[in-house]
């Protein structure tokens, strides 16, 4: 069966300067499949510099991969033309981190919501436009009469972020890329936005790629998780497997550092190896080598994926007695 979206061995390298050889591997041999029949919420987690946002940009077609290909409904997204390109643009939508930066302060919210309807010719009349806007706003838990006609500065961060989701929803997307959608929203409103995203998947069948560094929210909303570190997938699997029983030393450190809002669950049982300024970049080897408490000589080579549990795989030589799997088959393990 054809996948809705597929990333096949995608690598993105940013080169600096015209002559210099310096380059940064932002994403290394990343593969991903998304199925139209089974909409899911997948988390891509990682700290700053892990390649999360590069992945979002690639999925949206804003940048081209250095190696590998990205397919949407079986076609390379950078070769799409005319109607197909429009369809791709409409069906793959995004919600970004900063709910303050994406609004034009000179226009009322109505403008933000009517432009996409006009651009994609989704409505035949003004009344139909209005109906669509009302429906989308209601779907994200807002009252249209409180929102319409207002300027962005008259709305709270949580309201704005939900308007962004409503805007994406207007276009009946198949995939929503949510890049840190709640990191700038107050704790009391976070739950509302996560709930909105969650119901989008359930009620409207939208697949969501939830990009975040916050594993507490990831655990609550997502079915599966991919942990990135410096552009490489460290561990992937079902969210219950990975967060409750992390296997890769990096994931273990990451999970142990989550400040759970629970006084009976203390953080920091594992020590953090203080990172020196001059890290020897083992270009070929495991990216976590220099900070790993369990590093071995063999880690100077790139570890392949080993399947540890039915729904869990890690890229680490500690598990070399397990079955090895190809990176492009990694997402087959993930639960839907």
């Amino acid at each position: 069966m054809q996948d809705l979206m597929e990333l096949k061995n995608v690598t993105k390298i940013y080169s600096q300067g015209l002559m210099s050889q310096e380059s940064t591997v932002a994403l290394n041999n990343f593969s991903l499949k998304m199925n139209e029949e089974k909409p899911t919420i997948m988390t891509v987690a990682g700290e700053s510099g892990s390649g999360k946002t590069t992945l979002a940009m690639l999925l949206l077609g804003f940048i081209k991969p250095t190696e590998g290909q990205i397919f949407y409904k079986g076609k390379d997204i950078h070769n799409l033309k005319g109607q197909e390109k429009l369809t791709f643009r409409r069906e793959v939508q995004a919600v970004f981190q900063d709910p303050f930066a994406v609004f034009n302060p000179f226009y009322t919210v109505d403008h933000l919501l009517t432009v996409p309807i006009k651009k994609f010719k989704l409505a035949k009349s003004k009344i139909e436009t209005q109906d669509k806007i009302n429906e989308a706003l209601t779907a994200v838990g807002l009252h249209p009469q409180d929102i319409l006609g207002r300027f962005p500065h008259q709305l709270s961060g949580g309201q704005r972020q939900r308007i962004n989701i409503a805007r994406a929803l207007l276009l009946r997307p198949k995939i929503l890329i949510a890049d840190e959608p709640v990191s700038m929203v107050d704790a009391s409103l976070r739950a509302n936005i996560l709930e909105t995203l969650s119901s989008l998947q359930k009620d409207y069948g939208v697949s969501i790629v939830y990009i975040t560094h916050d594993l507490t929210t990831a655990y609550h909303i997502a079915k599966s998780i991919v942990v990135l570190y410096r552009g490489t997938v460290m561990e992937a699997g079902g969210v219950d497997e990975v967060i409750i029983k992390p296997q890769h030393p990096y994931t273990q450190l990451l999970i142990d550092s989550i400040p759970w809002p629970d006084i009976n669950r203390r953080w920091g049982k594992t020590d953090i190896k203080v990172e020196d300024m001059e890290i020897g970049e083992f270009k070929a080897g495991c990216k976590f080598y220099s900070r790993c408490p369990r590093s071995m000589d063999i880690c100077k080579d790139l570890p392949p994926f080993y399947q540890i549990e039915p729904k869990q795989a890690a890229s680490c030589f500690l598990f070399d007695q397990n079955l090895q799997i190809a990176p492009e088959n990694m997402t087959d393990l993930l639960p839907h």
Partner: peptide, 17 residues
């Protein structure tokens, strides 16, 4: 309203702003 390991998938925000 806080997420926890025990109450997975329960979202409870504070109504209103």
């Amino acid at each position: 309203s806080l997420p926890n390991l025990e109450n997975k998938g329960v979202f409870k925000g504070i109504p209103g702003v």
